[in-house]
Simulated assay, not measured.
Amino acid sequence: MSLVIEQAVEARLVAAAPRMPTIPATLRYDSRDPFAVRMTFPAPSTLEGVEVCWTFARELLATGLDEPAGDGDVRVRPYGYDRTVMEFHAPEGTAIVHIHSGELRRFLKRATALVPVGREHRQIDLDHDLAELMGGAC
């Protein structure tokens, strides 16, 4: 059975303009994919005008609250006392947002209550996933 946690967060887009605009985002954690977190930005807040969803490791988010983490498309690091910086790198460019660390910690606490760290493997149904990949070829 899949259990899902979703939480709206307020992100401040770091831009060249002096005032950083606030954009909505949604964090999502699904027990069927226990190692991953998804962060979705709605269409009106993106340059392309389409919803954008980034998927990254729950561990990356947790580590990035306390120290710089990530060297790929998603990077997370603490910023000051109560903010976390998230960088999203794509061929089209880089988006950098600030999020209140407390919002991220609250989300991670809820996700950890659902699937404790170190127990993610118990949520994975390898037989079902393999059968889906094989498309009934077995």
Rank of each mutant, 00 (worst) to 15 (best):
E87C: 02
V14E: 11
I99Q: 06
D127M: 13
G80L: 06
E51L: 13
L3H: 10
P91D: 11
A15D: 15
M20H: 07
C138P: 15
Y29N: 11
I124A: 07
M39C: 07
D30Q: 05
V14K: 09
L130E: 07
V4G: 14
R19C: 12
I96E: 14
E103G: 09
I23D: 13
T46M: 07
S31I: 03
R75A: 10
A15L: 15
R119L: 15
E103A: 04
I5K: 10
C138A: 12
L133N: 08
L114N: 01
G72F: 09
L133S: 09
M39V: 01
Q7V: 08
V37R: 02
R28L: 00
A43D: 03
G136S: 01
I23T: 13
V115C: 08
A8M: 15
A111F: 06
A137E: 15
R106S: 14
G80T: 01
A137M: 02
P24H: 00
G49K: 03
G70L: 10
H121K: 11
A16D: 15
R122I: 06
D66A: 05
P34E: 05
F35R: 10
A16Y: 06
P42Y: 06
R38C: 00
A57F: 06
T40Q: 13
Q7T: 02
H100M: 10
S45A: 08
H121L: 02
A43I: 13
G72H: 11
R32V: 08
A43P: 03
L114R: 04
L61A: 05
D125W: 07
T112S: 12
